[in-house]
Design a protein around this nucleic acid. Structure first.
Lengths: 190, 190
DNA sequence: AGCTCCTCCTAACATACATCAAGCTATTAA
DNA sequence: TTAATAGCTTGATGTATGTTAGGAGGAGCT
């Protein structure tokens, strides 16, 4: 159950057996089925989730009802409405399972306690946050300056395991193009 | 000298006279001229700057030498290579003055001390960071889903004071369109 | 002053992507 | 099983933006 997340942590920080034990003791398991929501707009978000098994997407729905996919998550990724979690504001995003999922959750207040007791965790989450910020910045630049084809190739290159599991119309949405265009791009490439 | 930044802080947190004094005592003044750089790629970034007077831009330069503007800053804004500052990695961005500037700098290590002594500052910078994250996310969505014209109107609406001071080719770059296209859009609007 | 550089504008043409419409296949539901 | 639905593909056509080229006006420099 915990072997994946401990391996994940060990890529960034080294923990003693006791520290590992202390960490896993505050995690909560959660499983949700395909098409169910982990979060919905308006909720308070006090938990962040690590994906043991499955695939999810987070998206924003605009006033006109259009869906805009922010992120996908598969095994070994973290997901939640990060801004809501971090700032304490209400959620603005849907987080929806697109496969049956097994997750591990960590509570915000528990995390604060953990930071004080074992500062290495602060380091771990700081690194993850910085990486997310950089990834977001690079996505802005891609969206502004690159063609749909370039963005699709980048996506396949960066997230091959996601490309294989997510439907093309969801990938198209994430890339900011229409499914018809993605279909044509794929035809051109393969 | 310090009245602007204290007013700026007071929009988010309330400080006693002593706390204000403690804060301003750790600030350093810096002035740079138009076309000079505040940061360049490869540098270590230990200072964040608050703009008292002037206008700057931060941009990323890709392998092909193309400039991609990330952000503008005018009076009452903070600027630096945030990821480098936050993560300790080397800078990837240029921060360049596009007018003569007067700035106040705060050092990363001083900030850490300040957080411990007066936790309200942690609150202040956390709010600023969350806001920056949300703004970046919303810029991703705009870039992916909206036309150049919509993005330009949003930009004029959100940052009227910047629109007036920055050249059109820089605005076009920020919006991810060519100056010729921006010119067409402006002709169409006015 | 005269010169150069920079900014902005305009126009003709090219390209990437959206839109609309239709058909094909595989999965789901009755 | 058949019917319905969702996802993918294709074609015809429209629109926004890029590309290339040129010109007008202003700012700063010699």
């Amino acid at each position: 159950m915990y072997s994946e997340i401990l391996k994940h942590l060990s890529e960034y920080i080294s923990l003693t057996a006791e520290e590992e034990e202390e960490f896993t003791s505050v995690l909560t398991e959660k499983s949700i089925n395909k098409k169910q929501f982990l979060t919905q707009p308006g909720q308070e978000i006090t938990t962040e989730y690590y994906v043991i098994k499955g695939c999810l997407q987070s998206y924003y729905q605009d006033e006109a009802g259009n869906k805009h996919i922010i992120q996908f998550a598969v095994e070994d990724w973290w997901i939640s409405d990060f801004e809501a979690f971090f700032s304490g504001r209400k959620a603005e995003l849907y987080v929806e399972a697109i496969e049956d999922c097994m997750l591990l959750g960590i509570q915000k207040d528990t995390l604060e306690i953990l930071y004080k007791r074992i500062p290495k965790f602060e380091r771990f989450f700081r690194i993850k946050t910085t990486n997310a910020f950089v990834a977001l910045r690079s996505r802005v630049l891609s969206a502004l300056q690159k063609t749909g084809k370039q963005r699709y190739l980048e996506f396949c290159d960066q997230y091959p395991q996601i490309e294989r599991r997510v439907s093309n119309h969801n990938i198209a949405n994430y890339l900011g193009i229409k499914p018809e265009s993605l279909s044509r791009i794929r035809k051109e490439i393969f």
